[in-house]
């Protein structure tokens, strides 16, 4: 028996919105520890990794580890039937054919339940080493979203350069070119969540497809902060912490010299 209850059901809506344009089908693994998902996009250029700890749920029970093969677009359709303030409960048997979703309005006046058919999905799991990255940038997620959106109008590839002073995002295209630099905040600058913080061992410059970075920014509603982890010649990690429950991280392979 698997049962997981989230008072803030809208969180689940936001998570599926943040994944479904990149990944169509995925296995969500449920264990005593919580929910995890690892899935690549169809072209194997990027990977999305979701982690929701059991302690972040209001109620969590998982007697036996199970894998839920989900069509994320279809799950998104069902979650659209939930109100934004609804409490959402997920339920499945030990050898499930379906996932039951129950939505309860805050005053308990409306209770609905839906069953989503599960699928057998063959996935390739990648072993991702626990790496110490040379640069970690923490910045407001809305700022990152704006930069990616703005630069995507000009070109396809973004050069991200991280130095102690700041992070430079550069693009060039047929119409011209552009750069946006965000500088490290000084300690006196306002709110923690509005700050840009850079931890750097050595400067890093990498090239990335803006199209994918754009997919990742669908996670912006999940939190005020995004973290970018970079080292030379390896995929970037774009990590969105989800307050009190876990995180969603995207890995994107760089564009490299031919």
């Amino acid at each position: 028996m698997f049962e997981a209850r989230l008072t803030e059901g809208s969180l689940l809506k936001k998570i599926i919105e943040a994944i479904k344009d990149l990944v169509q089908e995925a296995n969500v693994d449920c264990s005593e520890e919580g929910l995890t998902m690892q899935a690549m996009d169809a072209s194997h250029v990027s990977l999305c990794s979701l982690n929701m700890r059991h302690g972040g749920f209001d109620h969590y029970r998982c007697d036996r580890s199970i894998s839920l093969g989900l069509n994320l677009a279809n799950l998104g359709k069902i979650l659209k039937c939930a109100g934004n303030d609804d409490v959402v409960t997920l339920k499945a048997e030990d050898e499930p054919d379906t996932l039951t979703l129950m939505f309860e309005s805050p005053n308990q006046e409306r209770i609905s339940d839906f069953e989503l058919k599960l699928m057998d999905i063959e996935t390739e799991h990648l072993g991702i080493p626990n790496e110490e990255y040379k640069c970690t940038i923490s910045m407001p997620s809305g700022e990152f979203q704006r930069i990616v959106r703005d630069l995507a109008v000009i070109g396809e590839t973004c050069i991200i350069t991280c130095t102690k002073e700041g992070v430079k995002f550069s693009v060039s295209g047929d119409l011209g070119n552009g750069n946006v630099t965000v500088r490290q905040s000084s300690a006196a600058d306002g709110d923690e969540k509005d700050q840009v913080k850079i931890q750097m061992e050595e400067p890093v410059t990498l090239n990335f497809a803006l199209r994918y970075l754009g997919f990742f920014t669908k996670a912006t509603p999940l939190g005020s902060t995004v973290k970018l982890h970079m080292s030379p010649d390896v995929p970037i990690v774009v990590e969105y912490p989800i307050d009190g429950i876990g995180s969603i991280s995207y890995f994107l392979a760089p564009k490299i010299d031919e």
Binding site: S43, H44, V45, H125, L126, P129, A253, K255, E258
Partner: peptide, 14 residues
């Protein structure tokens, strides 16, 4: 020119 690398160039299949 630059080409898009695949994740398989960096991570092993489990």
């Amino acid at each position: 020119g630059r080409k898009q690398a695949s994740l398989f160039s960096f991570f092993q299949k489990k």
